[in-house]
């Protein structure tokens, strides 16, 4: 069944120009951000120059093994919005073209339909992870002096965490797509939620609860590297990972419920 669903999603996605444009844009922007990572780091620190804090201006430090894994995953997580947009478009197209109805009357169950979209999210997460892995290896191998295998794998944990983060973000996008059904509305909501709503809500919660808000959990999976933010410890709490897994289950459950309860 998984192979069939994968085939179906592949056929839908591979011929869709918008996905190619967004995919290529994502690829180019990840590469550009990697190249300009030093400038990005400086920009982060520009507003908080404090006495006693030594900000290194050596570009290569960020791109040496093992720091490169944290650097690249953190930087490229800023581009999740592009992948999220792809997921929202993929879901909303099914409603606007009414192809979800055709798929269901042709024999796909609503649950299988949801699985096919989960597979789409998984594939996008896999693509993003492989891209970061490849870029990290290439750039790290070029830049790192006194290269050892231990250095390469020292902060390897950021790769699966990045994968989880991307998947969680895309599952949130999937749920938003299912709830809004119109691509423009869904994408706008994702933007507004990520950049505005959660910040506003957080403003009223001066406790650790805010760390468990949906986007906070997503961000918490890949903390800012210590050379980006002076107080960052670059340590991912187990509670954040647990919260991410709970959110994954919750998003899947709600998506299933929305599909199951609604007339198509």
């Amino acid at each position: 069944m998984i192979k069939t669903l994968l085939n179906i999603e592949y056929r839908k996605a591979i011929n869709y120009k918008t996905f190619w444009i967004l995919g290529v844009l994502h690829f180019i922007l990840v590469c550009i951000l990697t190249i300009f990572v030093k400038e990005l780091s400086d920009a982060f620190n520009l507003s908080t120059p404090k006495k006693g804090v030594v900000i290194t201006s050596n570009l290569k430090v960020y791109l040496f093994f093992p720091k490169i894994w944290n650097t690249l995953t953190f930087v490229s997580s800023m581009l999740h919005i592009l992948l999220g947009t792809m997921v929202i478009i993929s879901i909303c197209n099914e409603f606007s073209y009414k192809t979800i109805r055709h798929n269901i009357v042709s024999g796909l169950s609503k649950r299988e339909f949801l699985y096919s979209k989960l597979i789409f999210c998984l594939c996008l997460s896999l693509y993003a992870t492989v891209l970061i892995l490849a870029l990290g290896l290439i750039i790290g191998l070029i830049n790192t002096p006194n290269l050892t295998f231990n250095k390469i794998i020292a902060q390897w944990q950021f790769i699966p965490l990045y994968s989880l983060q991307t998947f969680l973000y895309l599952m949130l996008a999937l749920l938003i797509g299912l709830l809004f059904k119109k691509a423009a509305l869904g994408i706008s909501f994702l933007f507004v939620y990520v950049f505005l709503i959660e910040n506003i809500i957080s403003f009223f919660f001066h406790s650790s609860i805010e760390n468990y808000f949906p986007y906070e959990v997503i961000s918490g999976l890949i903390p800012a590297p210590d050379h980006f933010q002076e107080n960052s410890s670059a340590v991912v709490l187990l509670s954040t990972i647990a919260a991410a897994i709970i959110y994954l289950v919750l998003y899947t459950f709600i998506s299933n419920l929305v599909l199951k309860r609604e007339d198509l």
Partner: peptide, 30 residues
């Protein structure tokens, strides 16, 4: 539903896919 052929009102296919690719999706489902 895989044993029933259905055409409800206007046909709902992916506009950016060819006729053949659209049918392949239905064939995969069935």
């Amino acid at each position: 539903r895989k044993k029933i052929g259905v055409l409800i009102e206007t046909p709902n296919f992916y506009p950016y896919l060819s006729a053949e690719d659209n049918l392949k999706i239905i064939a995969d489902i069935k």
